[in-house]
Design a protein around this nucleic acid. Structure first.
Length: 716
DNA sequence: ACCTAAGCGGTTTAGACAGCATGTC
DNA sequence: CTAAACCGCTTAGGT
């Protein structure tokens, strides 16, 4: 499992001078041990490799060398796949370097596209697993030119939700050439064999990591002991273990990343630590700048902004998905610049972009399990490794420290063995569920074209799922997909129906499509809330938290609703809570398109700005999909309504503002301002340029008038 | 009669991917 | 099944 600590000079690489120059410009003169090992295993000769090593061990550079060398020798295109949009962004920025030697780099995800020419003009394309899966279904010609795939963070294959897509992409990628990168996993040999790639595993880190477990001493109050991996111990004094260790690290001039298992605890821990932060030397000027940045952010609720501002001025912040993306970005950047000393976060920060700190404190080893009410389970070792892997900033820290907090000595010993001494869980296929497997087959047929059952089965056997399970799910899937007219059998050949192809292209779950089809077919018309409720009730619908008080209120609302929902209230308890959840989503999105003020929505439904963003994004996609399905199914009563609803959801506006928001720079707020002042359409903007300028300010007003003229011209 | 601290029961609980348009042999 | 923090309310105990 270990490699010799050998550092190869970049001058010895079999690469053109210009390529080596790019590395040198980054300040790299030699390759670290994992990188050296990869080169020795034939990375530059296009050998297929599976590399497992800790975060921050320089896998990205390995991928770059692999891609560049492959493109130089064999031509074609390379695709780099990640599980997160944020990572796609990050890698794209890094890979841009290679444009200096003529490789054009693009990125594409649901979030963002490189927007000049389309991907056929690019050599390196960075994308997400889902987006690649989706692109494959659309069968663009350029995808045939891709002969080299880099599968990043392959351990996402183990994720129950996202894993099936990773696996499905891997099955198709392994028919070409690939390089797979993963965090440390235990069954890397098996996975390497499956990918037909040589497995290279290392534990090398740029900054050594020391791991420990901290527990309170029974006899002495306020005293805590940390046992470290090297058998040393350390005593820490304080009212609370997390605060005590955080202060200890701060006093040694370190930065601290604390993980908690709920948003509420992340926030309250941040406040508690903040009370002690006045002993620390802070960059007050720098922090004032950060506070100003927060003020300038448009996206984000005013409550959460005020809270964060008071914390940040003390050098600390909390971080979770309830916050809008821009708020999170500011916090992360301020931490990177060492202005903020402590972040208390939920697991958002465990995966994703690199944000290291000297000290990582894992506050909770337990997590609530949604599926089993009231049950708390220990997090997987893999997750611990992701969190502890954030410890140690190259260039700043000689050593990184990761501390797990537990209740008592007995737990400390057990947790020490489980998380620090043992290896991580093996990676297993997550295709073994009806939903995952049916989607998998539909995707294969869509991407690879019509084929016989035998050929399709051949694909399915290439998955990681045991053959016996494939057999069970395969027949069931074919039957279900045929019965629900996603596919039809013509002789020996399985063909997608138009409906099936549309569903695959829209990238919605077949179960979602089936629910939507039934809902729409059974009713001639529906009110806005009923459409939203139907869509939110599907497996693709967004989840929100519903408190028991809210549940009662919502149940009453269902009874008094003056419009008929498209789904009957289910009997089963689980289904019922989904039904109520969907109603909450429907009410939120209805308020959104009725132009209810954002702060009001956040307060009324007790959600964060990040949650609202997520709901809007998902409902945007689903209303679009429903509109497309109603078109496909020729349900004319529905499609105009759904089309308009989709446009309204995008911008959060009433129908009357649809014309104004076409102008870039005009969103729900500015459009409403213009409209209420008599500027109701593009024509009005052009006829009253002075008024527009006085309402929006002269600079923006000028731009808006020009843009409106351009739009109008395009129509004529 | 009034105040405070401790005790009790109920409640709550992480994250984040996907369409569209583009151009064409 | 292996949790813990918080909130609102009640109650014991003291003055």
């Amino acid at each position: 499992m270990s490699v010799e600590l050998e550092w190869m000079l970049i001058d010895d690489l079999q690469l053109p001078k210009e390529a080596i120059e790019i590395l040198r410009n980054r300040g790299i003169s030699k390759l670290n041990p994992p990188q050296t090992e990869a080169v020795k295993k034939g990375l530059l000769d296009g050998n297929r490799l599976l590399l497992t090593s800790p975060t921050g061990s320089g896998k990205t550079l390995i991928a770059e060398l692999g891609m560049i060398s492959f493109l130089l020798k064999k031509g074609g295109k390379a695709v780099y796949v990640t599980p997160l949009r944020a990572l796609t962004n990050e890698k794209y920025t890094t890979f841009k370097d290679w444009e200096k030697i003529g490789f054009k780099v693009a990125m594409t995800s649901g979030d963002y596209d490189t927007d000049d020419a389309w991907l056929k003009n690019y050599d390196i394309i960075v994308t997400t697993y889902e987006k690649l899966d989706s692109l494959w279904r659309h069968r663009p010609n350029w995808l045939n030119e891709v002969n080299y795939f880099v599968l990043d963070e392959l351990h996402y294959l183990n994720d129950p939700e996202r894993g099936p897509v990773v696996e499905s992409v891997a099955i198709r990628a392994k028919r070409k050439n690939l390089l797979a990168l993963s965090a440390t996993i235990s069954n890397y040999k098996q996975i390497g064999k499956w990918l037909n790639a040589e497995a290279v595993a290392t534990n090398w880190r740029p900054v050594p990591l020391i791991e420990g477990v901290m527990y309170p001493e029974k006899k002495k109050k306020k005293e805590y002991t940390v046992i470290f991996k090297d058998n040393t111990t350390k005593k820490v004094i304080g009212d609370d273990p997390i605060i005590a260790y955080t202060l200890d690290s701060l006093s040694r001039n370190g930065q601290v990343l604390v993980f908690r298992n709920s948003r509420r605890m992340a926030e309250s821990t941040a406040y508690k630590i903040a009370n002690y932060m006045n002993f620390i030397n802070l960059d007050e000027k720098g922090l004032a700048e950060v506070v100003k940045q927060l003020d300038d952010i448009e996206e984000g609720g005013s409550n959460e902004k005020e809270e964060l501002k008071s914390l940040i001025s003390k050098g600390i912040a909390y971080h979770h998905a309830g916050l809008s993306k821009s708020l999170r970005d500011v916090i992360e950047e301020a931490f990177r610049q060492r202005k903020i000393k402590v972040i208390v976060a939920t697991p958002t920060l465990a995966a994703g972009v690199n944000l290291p700190a000297r000290t990582v404190i894992i506050g909770d080893i337990y997590r609530f399990n949604k599926r089993i009410a009231g049950f708390q389970e220990e997090i997987p070792v893999m997750e611990y490794k992701q969190m502890s892997g954030r410890a140690g900033r190259p260039g700043y820290d000689d050593i990184g420290e990761a501390i797990i907090i537990v209740r008592d000595k007995e737990n400390a010993d057990r947790v020490f063995k489980k998380y620090i001494l043992s290896s991580v869980e093996p990676i297993e296929s997550k295709l073994g569920s009806e939903r995952a497997f049916y989607t998998f087959l539909l995707g294969l047929l869509s991407a690879e074209g019509d084929m016989s059952e035998k050929e399709l089965a051949k694909f399915a056997y290439e998955s990681l799922l045991p053959r016996s399970l494939v057999d069970i799910y395969f027949d069931r899937a074919i039957n279900w997909l045929t019965d629900h007219s996603f596919i039809k059998e013509q002789g020996d050949i399985l063909t997608l129906t138009n409906f099936g192809k549309r569903v695959a292209d829209l990238y919605i779950n077949p179960f979602t499509a089936d629910i939507v089809r039934k809902g729409l077919e059974d009713h001639k018309s529906a009110c806005d809330i009923a459409y939203f409720h139907l869509l939110a009730y599907t497996p693709d619908g967004p989840l929100v938290s519903v408190s028991s008080n809210e549940e009662e209120e919502l149940t009453e609302i269902v009874e008094d609703l003056d419009c008929e929902l498209l789904i009957d209230e289910p009997y089963e308890e689980d289904e019922q809570s989904l039904y109520i959840n969907a109603l909450k989503v429907a009410l939120i999105i209805k308020d959104w398109i009725e132009e209810v003020d954002e702060d009001t929505i956040l307060g009324k439904y007790n959600i964060g700005s990040g949650d609202l963003r997520n709901i809007v994004e998902t409902m945007d996609w689903l209303t679009y999909s429903a509109y497309q399905l109603s078109k496909e199914l020729k349900l004319e009563d529905h499609y105009d309504k759904l089309r308009i609803l989709n446009s309204r959801v995008k911008d959060g506006i009433k129908e009357e503002l649809l014309e104004l928001v076409q102008i870039s720079g005009i969103g729900r707020k500015r459009a409403r301002l213009l409209y209420n002042n008599g500027i109701k359409g593009l024509g009005d903007v052009i006829m009253n340029p002075e008024k527009v300028k006085s309402l929006l300010g002269s600079k923006l007003g000028e731009k808006v008038v020009q843009e409106a003229a351009r739009l109008l011209n395009r129509f004529h």
